[in-house]
């Protein structure tokens, strides 16, 4: 926050989760920088020309989700990071939907920051992880004060103030008593996924996604939003059923013990791109099977009677 001010720009895309929009809106009003939005194409993919065209010498940070939480579309963050760096900007990636579902190599992708959540990857709620390049974090000031994040707090009697110096990384950014129980649970979830193998997680999800899309296209009443090829998307399928609101669809499936999200999925701007009031969202993870997709289709077909 201390490194942003008037004349600076931060770039995000219209496919972001609200968590990668709202904080920037709040801070932009406090610090006076300009927040810019890159377009999304009608098919739900990023408009790379627009994103890269909006990067310039004033851009301090470019922010992009690696995978959309609405469409599952995978963004080429390596490509965007290169253009961001060519313009002197830092690259922040929202990995909440990518890290749990696919291998992510922060060095290969050359991202400066990566954030992801525990509860999206079999871990506890209320905890997440934030990666930053060491040389970037070294230059940054702490955003919270408290215990552990300091090296010294030396009181100077003559000047009536304390001289404070910061601890080393990562403690400089970890003020106070941390969420220890959450971190232990999060660590166990990460180990579980690593034991499964993230390549295996990815290929399982892609198989399920391909199968689900093929089956869902059997229904004439279903419209799928975003890409329908599993080559550049993960296991998230937003859809609508003709004549029904997304909430009707979700409540209908709820009767059969099948859970799905309905509404904006915390991504209202992307729904504006799709000109949708809301959508239903089917999603898959390591524990789902093809048989469950067949069951999902049986229920979906019953909706045709409405």
């Amino acid at each position: 926050m201390n490194n942003l001010g008037k004349g600076d720009e931060v770039l995000v895309s219209l496919m972001e989760h609200h968590s990668n929009i709202v904080p920037w809106e709040i801070v932009s009003k406090l610090k006076g920088f300009t927040l810019k939005y890159a377009k999304v194409k009608p098919d739900g993919t990023l408009d790379y020309d627009d994103f890269e065209g909006k990067l310039c010498g004033r851009t301090k940070i470019a922010c992009l989700s690696q995978v959309s939480n609405v469409t599952g579309v995978i963004n080429d963050v390596k490509r965007v990071a290169k253009v961001a760096h060519d313009n002197g900007a830092l690259m922040l990636v929202d990995g909440a939907q990518s890290v749990p579902h696919m291998p992510v190599d922060v060095q290969d992708l050359d991202m400066d920051f990566l954030a992801f959540s525990g509860h999206k990857m079999l871990g506890p709620t209320g905890i997440g992880a934030f990666y930053g390049k060491k040389e970037v974090l070294e230059k940054m000031s702490p955003f919270q004060g408290g215990g552990e994040m300091i090296r010294e707090v030396e009181f100077n009697q003559g000047q009536e103030h304390c001289k404070v110096s910061w601890n080393e990384l990562p403690w400089k950014f970890e003020a106070g008593t941390p969420n220890i129980a959450g971190a232990v649970g999060f660590g166990a979830a990460i180990k579980y996924l690593e034991d499964l193998g993230m390549e295996n997680v990815l290929s399982h999800e892609k198989e399920l996604t391909q199968y689900a899309i093929k089956r869902m296209r059997e229904s004439s009443k279903v419209t799928i939003y975003g890409p329908i090829e599993s080559t550049n998307k993960l296991g998230i399928i937003p859809f609508s059923v003709k004549g029904l609101s997304s909430h009707d669809v979700a409540l209908f499936f709820d009767n059969y013990g099948v859970m799905m999200r309905s509404g904006y999925h915390c991504a209202q701007p992307l729904h504006q791109v799709f000109e949708l009031e809301s959508s239903a969202r089917a999603s898959f993870y390591v524990y789902n099977t093809e048989e469950e997709i067949d069951r999902f289709m049986e229920i979906l077909k019953e909706l045709d009677q409405l």
Binding site: S245, H247, L251, S262, G263, Y264, H265, E277, S278
Partner: peptide, 10 residues
């Protein structure tokens, strides 16, 4: 209240 442009309630 439902999440979305519709003003429905569950």
């Amino acid at each position: 209240g439902t999440c979305g442009a519709e003003k429905d309630v569950i």
